[in-house]
Amino acid sequence: MENITQGLQGVPLNHYIWLSAIIFTIGVIGVLTRRNAIVIFMSVELMLNAVNLLLTAFSVHNNDPSGQVFVFFIMALAAAEVAVGLSIIVMVYRNTQSIDINVLNRLKW
């Protein structure tokens, strides 16, 4: 395992940042363009995972295990967020028979 991963090292740190930025942006575009509440949730998950990947890359780059511990905390947080968020979506669907977020625009006033 070590020999395999040692041979695959050496990617510039900038490329990890680019990859994370692109995946994060795809998540932002998903939040902005979709109207299905569940797909918006999935885009938020994409953004969280982009940040996780970047934290891991920085952790390996700086030889500091704290970054990977924080990734673990973010995963626990994401699990909690998904449970509460999906239950809110189920409740919204039960009340309005739709998961279109434009139905929720009466939260504006």
Binding site: Q9, L13, V60, H61, N63, Q68, F72
Partner: peptide
Amino acid sequence: ISDPVLLKNPNLGLVKNLGKELFGPY
């Protein structure tokens, strides 16, 4: 900044190392 990402300590991401970190300062 464009240094290559190199693994200096091969035990960095293993359970033993992270567990010590998780149950110590965190």
